[in-house]
Design a protein around this nucleic acid. Structure first.
Lengths: 203, 203
DNA sequence: GTCTATAGGGCGATAGAC
DNA sequence: GTCTATCGCCCTATAGAC
């Protein structure tokens, strides 16, 4: 049950840091500190104060960058979402489910590059229902984002919602299999096979 | 994006209340008080202390019945889950997607009886992402519950997961349409039409 | 039942960059 | 002067420990 996220550091790299009073990249340091602590002590046992201290900032600064303690683990999910939606938007004309497949392919292709990180992150999520909830919310955002992109391309709204749901189901279920220890195939391959199975199931 | 829950009062009705020192059905009163306050003041603005006071119990009692402030809105979702899983288990032999359809039918049939309440509850959820997260977790539980039931009946695990996901997608999307003000059809009808569309999409 | 740690938000102050 | 990042200290409610 889960997917998402890539980079821990999401700082705006086009902005040259003033390099004055404070160390640059507070966001990146907070993200790294959080993952280290969540891994070594567990998510619940880690306080925001500890994260902030390790990153050399105050608690208040943590909440400036991340709305809550969970959000720090989802810094990369926006990138995934954007890539998927862009792919749906730009795919060559085709039936709705194929457009969604293009979006899912794009997202899987990004995750693919960081299987090690995905596994670490997933091990943290697996132990915490409250993190799983957040993950589900991100997946719901992916669903509605792709659905909107389909509607923009002229797909009927009901069909768009269903097709996007199917795509995200394939993506999520494929993810679980992909990070399993004994799985040798790559993510894209798994996702594509799942789409085939899905067509068979419905037909 | 949402579904679930029926009754606010989930007290064990087979148990005859002692009717002694305390008013009976503390759980039911807490549930009713919470919904009233969430509606009139908003979810965030309502404190557990207010709910407890209105129900005539202490804060501590609230947390004895409900794990957290959100859970009070999901008292009925277990019933829905159980009904769906039982239906999948007991449906006559058929392809996986038809078994899932039986489960979804059962759940929709229950919700059907309380459209007014479903609308009220949904209006509270719509305004609060943290409640939407919890709803998604319940839907995920429904998915994995139905998937397990399918596996028990001999369906391949991967197919089971996909089929259950499809079913829950239909259920959730159908729910949104069903509670829309201008929708005249009943929930079961909408759900059945969605299954048809889904087959068309994949075919 | 009571007690307490912690999440998370409000807001003005401060120290730099431009 | 303006803007932006951070601090620091305020607060309350949640949720869990005892």
């Amino acid at each position: 049950m889960s997917v998402t996220d890539i980079s821990m550091s999401q700082t705006d790299i086009t902005y040259t840091h003033p390099m004055g009073r404070w160390q640059p990249d507070a966001r990146g340091r907070l993200g790294a500190a959080a993952i280290e602590l969540y891994l070594s002590q567990g998510f619940e046992a880690t306080t925001v104060a500890q994260i902030a201290e390790r990153a050399g900032v105050t608690e208040r600064t943590f909440f400036r960058y991340f709305g809550d303690k969970r959000e720090v683990l989802f810094a990369g999910s926006q990138e995934l979402l954007d890539a998927a939606i862009a792919a749906v938007r730009n795919a060559p004309d085709a039936p709705a489910l194929d457009l969604v497949a293009a979006g899912v392919d794009a997202a899987a292709g990004i995750l693919q590059l960081r299987q090690d990180h995905a596994r670490v992150r997933q091990s943290i999520l697996d132990a915490n229902p409250s993190l799983q909830e957040r993950e589900l919310l991100k997946m719901a955002a992916l669903t509605s984002g792709m659905a909107s992109a389909l509607v923009e391309r002229g797909v009927d709204p009901v069909d768009a919602g269903l097709a996007a749901s199917l795509g995200v189901s394939v993506f999520s279920q494929g993810f679980v299999r992909w990070i399993a220890a004994d799985e040798r195939r790559d993510y894209l391959e798994i996702v594509r096979e799942s789409f085939e199975r899905l067509r068979a199931l419905a037909g």
